[in-house]
Simulated assay, not measured.
Amino acid sequence: MDYKKLNEIIVSMRRELHKIPEVGTELPQTKSYVMSKLKELGLKPKECKKDSGLVCDIGDRNSKNIVAIRADMDALPICEETRFDYASTNGNMHACGHDAHMACLIGAAHYLLENKNKLKGTVRLVFQTAEELAIGAKNLINDGLLDGVKAIVGTHVGTIATDVPNGEFVIQEGPLMASYDKIIIKIVGKGSHGAYPHSGVDPVLTASQVVQGIYNIKSREIIATDPIVISICMINGGSQYNIIPSEVVLEGTFRTFSEENRKYIADRIKEISESIAYANRAKAEVEIIWGCPPVINDKNIVNQLNEVCKQLGFKKALPFAPSMGGEDFSEYLQNIPGVFIFFSTPTKKNIPHHNSKFEINESKLYQASVLMSEWAIKYLGENK
């Protein structure tokens, strides 16, 4: 297939999708657009019963030799400030590259259809909602739309791989992205006048000690060579400079690459919070909202992708330090071997994700479509 033409198709779709960003699980405009483009190719998408997600098969529909390629569809509640002529004006923004992910996956459909005679099975295109909320992958899995899939890959564009030049892939085995879970801690005390703290139970003082105690988990309870992040990012409480409130609420997150550490940190956050609160005559109510496990890439599929990348003449980046950011692609990897790829697409401005001025270099987007498609062809041929 003509790569230049394929890239033009992808860029055009990406810009059209960029104009209609939607957040969460219900993405009616986005879903309609994706389905129309797939149907134009003669394909028959299958809709998820739980949200706006969908899947679409290319190849032998009766084959039990199935691989999947995934894209996420949701945007962020950010007002765009890029000033592009295709900028969003609805108060949401594709500030994380999901518009490009969808366009590249539809681009893969174009490529796979032109190479359909090479397919020794089925390629399932997976379009999921709510990656930003860590819900979409679970919805598709629970709806049975990944049943029978033997392997899965996905690609993330943008600037996650810091300092990697445009058009280079990060393809590596083992940990790539961390687990991510949410902490909510309510410290309940007894309100009083700021001049008479002895007459109450100070939740502000208690909360400050809880934060310090939680941060000590990383530095004093887990081996220093294990990557761990624990961050309290919100502290809410109080209404007046001279009134000690009755309660304070802390919210934050913790990240790790180990399920053992993940459980340990959650348990210790609860123990430390409750103990410190008790020592201060207060009470701690701890809630852990489980997000997603870490993204751990499969060695054999990494080797296949490396071979394909080399054969295509695409560039691969040097080894990349795993990101402490999270991705619900990890939900697929709980039962299906797979690989999540970073594809670096920075512009000269090198603007980070989730920024109102986020932008990507569109010049080599076709490479993501071709790499994932050729991997699918290779996998199906080698694992009949």
Rank of each mutant, 00 (worst) to 15 (best):
E173K: 15
L17D: 02
V204H: 09
M13C: 02
K270Y: 04
A368G: 15
H193W: 10
K50A: 14
V248K: 02
G313T: 10
G338I: 06
W375I: 08
R15E: 09
R124C: 00
G213S: 10
H198I: 10
Y3V: 14
G326N: 05
K348D: 13
T129Y: 00
L41N: 09
G167K: 09
L312E: 12
T89P: 00
A376M: 12
K364D: 15
E40R: 10
K378V: 00
E8D: 11
K31T: 05
G200N: 14
G53N: 01
Q172Y: 14
K348W: 00
Q304Y: 03
K64R: 06
V370C: 15
A71R: 02
K310H: 08
M1R: 11
G91A: 03
K384D: 04
F127P: 00
V11D: 05
H198V: 10
N361I: 09
A161W: 02
E40F: 06
F340L: 15
G238Q: 05
Y366V: 14
V249Y: 01
R61A: 11
K64V: 00
V248W: 01
Q172T: 13
D74K: 04
I141Q: 03
V157T: 15
L113R: 09
G200R: 08
K37C: 07
A137P: 01
I187F: 06
C56M: 02
I377H: 06
R14G: 05
Y264T: 07
L27H: 04
N306M: 13
P227T: 05
